[in-house]
Design a protein around this nucleic acid. Structure first.
Lengths: 165, 165
DNA sequence: TAATTATGTCAGTGTTATTGACATATATCC
DNA sequence: GGATATATGTCAATAACACTGACATAATTA
């Protein structure tokens, strides 16, 4: 109850440490998205398209509403992006027979190709960082990022420990 | 030479592990920026203003060109945001006497107040995550994020190790 | 049958970014 | 000193991505 795996050392955090963390997140996210952004530009797509392609690929058959919940944008915003991806054959919709109001989203072969390309590039960057930092660092990375995520979504990333608790 | 602190275990990375990392970055960044965004909205400012305020606060006297280099946006984009911040008295400019083409940027007292508020909020989120994850995790977090950043900016975050080699 | 849910669409707006062109002041090179 | 380069600023047009508000339709649930 008091503390599980987290040994909760007092951890006096200097302003400098906190600012370094803030900046690390800024630079890492900037560069993490920069590479896919450049690829997507060839298709006249942007980061919003990427997010949709990614999460549809990851959660095949996801409904429109669930996707909105992940992206935290309005349906009008999603509509433009999703419409383009449907028109251009990267994603297809199928009505859910259990609840015929629902539209389930799937990547087409074309959509899966693009998703793979983008995920491979980002995966390569992650893998390089993981290798350079070492296995222990990976656990720390995951644990801290998980703590930054709002509580409501934290359970997406495991219960609390990350493999060896 | 071969490997400093990074014990370079083979590290077989499953697609699942890579995807979890990708998603952690997405969710963490989304929530990390969500809180400041809400505050900035009261001032009719957005995330772009935040970035300018943050980096000017952090690098007092930074030139316009150096700021563009960090943000990786065009000067026309910066111009609008910076112009507003100047007009409304959050930032002030002073000519650099060593090179009178340069404009050095400083936060005003008003600007520093806002910067402190925003940084405190983000710092609180980081601090909570750090405390929950533990001191070792912090090192791992820093090491992995540093590896994700493009090489050209990596040196901003220390040489390689993070405190205890 | 009435209310709710899931989705879609139309219209208007705002923020953040882009490219391209051009202007000014200052510094540096030859 | 004159040519060139650098640092900054500005005007104009455009695009991507998001928002709010209003309304419509189909299907499910109470």
């Amino acid at each position: 109850m008091l503390q599980s795996k987290t040994h909760s050392k007092p951890l006096f955090l200097s302003e400098e440490e906190l600012r370094q963390a803030i900046e690390l997140l800024f630079y890492a996210y900037r560069d993490f998205t920069g590479e896919p952004d450049a690829i997507l530009a060839h298709y006249d797509f942007g980061r919003a398209h990427h997010r949709v392609i990614y999460f549809v690929g990851r959660n095949s058959g996801i409904t429109v509403g669930a996707l909105l919940g992940i992206l935290k944008i309005t349906k009008q915003s999603l509509s433009r992006v999703l419409g383009q991806l449907l028109d251009e054959g990267f994603i297809e919709q199928r009505t859910d027979n259990d609840d015929r109001r629902r539209r389930m989203l799937f990547l087409t072969a074309k959509g899966a190709d693009l998703e793979n390309l983008l995920t491979q590039r980002q995966g390569r960057r992650i893998a390089n960082a993981y290798r350079a930092a070492g296995a222990d660092a990976v656990d720390g990375f995951r644990a801290v990022l998980r703590g930054i995520v709002n509580e409501e979504d934290r359970s997406r990333f495991g219960d609390s420990a990350s493999g060896h608790g």
